[in-house]
Design a protein around this nucleic acid. Structure first.
Length: 265
DNA sequence: TTCCAGGCGTATC
DNA sequence: GATACGCATGGA
């Protein structure tokens, strides 16, 4: 990874990045594709237009300070994904998955943003999740804080058209706003403990908790298993997922998830 | 019309 | 602890 400043833009050079594989595969739900290899979206309330391919990207109208404070972390630019893929390639299935999508990265999102987004993901599809989150941010004019959201009711959240998940979003907001679930503390807890803590929220089960831990708290041992990953595990890992990858199995899961979905879906 | 979508809570055994 | 079922909404 290296970058340079070009007027109001940042030019980013990173070989292990493909925007479609990172921003449009259900890791984060706040990005809209605005053209070929071009996206507009937010991390909380920081907007970004990013475009590029082939290892060269333009982050438009972004200061170096914002790049280093927000986007460097968000795109996990401090991690060597080539090294990770070499490690994963010791496994036959993972080698294929890594070869299939070389531009995968873990998006390191804000914990609250990830929690709320994945609460809405339950028994839902990516298009609708994005719609719900977009209406939420549109309604407030920014991404709501837990305090703001906790003032709502199931009825007032009807405008989101989020169905039965509205009460889950409210419970998440109330527990976080009241401090009953402290996301900063949860992020510091060991994986298992943190997962149990998140599952105290109504609407947060094992899968959503793992997504929040992985995407929102960078617990790379969190391993979300949905219907797609269930198929991968049953078919390719009948004896269990290799223990040697445990510390970063969540990132391995990103490659496998993307592989099975594009291949089968 | 019916089925399904990056699940979860509840009831029941 | 395992398994069955309902759940809001909307696209295919």
């Amino acid at each position: 990874m290296r970058y340079e400043i070009s007027g109001k833009d940042i030019i980013l050079y990173e070989d292990d990045l493909v925007l479609d594989e990172v921003l449009d595969t259900g890791q984060a739900f706040r990005w809209d594709k605005t053209g070929e290899n071009s996206y507009f979206g937010h991390s909380l309330d920081t907007p970004l237009k990013i475009s590029g391919s082939g290892g060269k990207f333009i982050l438009e109208n972004t200061s170096e300070e914002t790049f280093l404070n927000v986007w460097y972390n968000y795109f996990d630019l401090g991690t060597d994904y080539s090294a990770l893929r070499r490690e994963y390639s010791k496994d036959v299935t993972l080698r294929e998955a890594c070869r299939f999508s070389r531009g995968i990265r873990l998006l390191r999102q804000d914990p609250w943003e990830a929690l709320l987004s994945f609460v809405f993901s339950s028994n839902n599809n990516i298009t609708r999740i994005k719609g719900i989150v977009a209406r939420l941010a549109e309604h407030y004019g920014h991404f709501p804080t837990p305090q703001e959201l906790s003032q709502e009711t199931v009825e007032s959240l009807g405008l989101l058209r989020s169905g039965f998940r509205a009460k889950y979003a409210l419970d998440a907001a109330q527990k976080v706003a009241s401090g009953e679930v402290n996301l900063e503390n949860v992020a510091k807890m060991p994986y298992i403990e943190a997962k149990n803590e998140l599952m105290r929220i109504c609407g947060v089960g094992p899968k959503v908790a793992d997504c929040v831990l992985l995407g929102g708290m960078y617990k790379t041992e969190a391993f979300p298993v949905d219907v797609w990953m269930r198929r991968v595990l049953d078919e390719y890992y009948p004896d269990g997922f290799p223990e040697e990858f445990y510390p970063t199995r969540g990132i391995a899961q990103l490659y496998l998830f993307n592989y099975i979905r594009k291949f089968r879906g």
